[in-house]
Amino acid sequence: MDSAWLQYVFAGLTTGSIYALVAIGYNIIYNVTEIINFAQGEFVMLGGLLAVFFMEGCRLPLPLAFAAAVLAVGAIGLAMERFVIRQARNASVLSLIIITIAFSILLKGSAMFGWGKDPYRLEPFTAGGPLLFGGAALQPQALWVLGLTAVVVVLLSLFFRRSIYGKAMLACADNPNAARMVGVPVRTMVLLSFLLSAAIGAAAGVAITPISLMEYDRGALLGLKGFGAAVLGGLGQFSGALVAGLLLGLAEAFCAGYLSSGYKDAIALVLLLLALFFKPEGLFGSSEAAKLKRF
C-alpha cells in the first residue's frame, strides 16, 4: 500500500507523456492553420498497428520498424493535407470539423479492415524485468516512452528555434498574411505541419503499444485526452502541453488507483470539459490573450 502511490506516479507519467505528444501534435497543426485535427488520435493508433505490421509481418528489426511506421503515418498526414484539407480551403468551420472527423473515421475503418477488431501487442524495445524503486515497479518500456517524449520536445524546440523551416512555421502561426508577404511558403508550412504532427503521433503510438497494446478503435479516446492536455496547457503552447499532459496522466492514474478504475477514462474527459467551460485559455494562459483568439 505504501508504494502504491509511486506506482501510480510511474503509470501516470507514462500515459501522460503520450497525451503530451498527442497535444503537441494538435498544437503544431493548430498553430499553422487554426484547425483542430480530429484525426490526431488515429495517427497514434496507426503508428502502433503499423509498427506491429512492420515487425511481425515484414520481420524488420525494431529501429527500422519504428522508422517505417513513423514515415508511413507521416505520409498519411501529408496526404490528408494535400488531398483533403487543401480541397476544403474555402469550407466553413463546420465543414472542416466534419471533414477531419470523416478522415478519422476513414483511418479507423481502414485499420479495422486491415487488422480486425483484436488488440495487438508489440515486444518491448528492450528486454528485461521491471526496475524496482521503493517497492514500485517501473517497466523499461516506460523509460523508453519518457525518453522519447524528452527527445521529441528537445528536437522540436531546436527545430523551432534554429532551423529556417521551424522559424517560418512560427511566423505562419503568428500572422499568416504577414508571413506570406515576406515570402514564407505558407502552403509548404501547412503541409509540413501535418507531416510533423502525424509523425509525432505515430512515434507515440509505437512507444505505447508494448505497454497498453493497440487496437483499431483506440484513436478517438487518445485524441480526446490529448486534446484535453492541449487545452489545459493553452492551445498552441508546447511547454504547456507537456506539463498538462503529464498532469492529466497523473490525475488519471490516481483516479484509477484510489477511486474507480471503471471511470478512469472519464476523469480526463471531465477535466477537459471543465477546462473548456471555465478556463478555455488553459491553466497557464491569461484570459486577456485568449480574448483575441477565436474559440
Partner: peptide, 18 residues
C-alpha cells in the same frame, strides 16, 4: 464555438457512454 464545441460535445458523449 466551432472546434471547441465539437470537442466538448464529443467529450460529453463519451462520458455518458462510459
Amino acid at each position: 464555438k466551432g472546434h471547441y464545441l465539437a470537442m466538448a460535445t464529443l467529450g460529453f458523449g463519451v462520458i455518458v457512454h462510459i
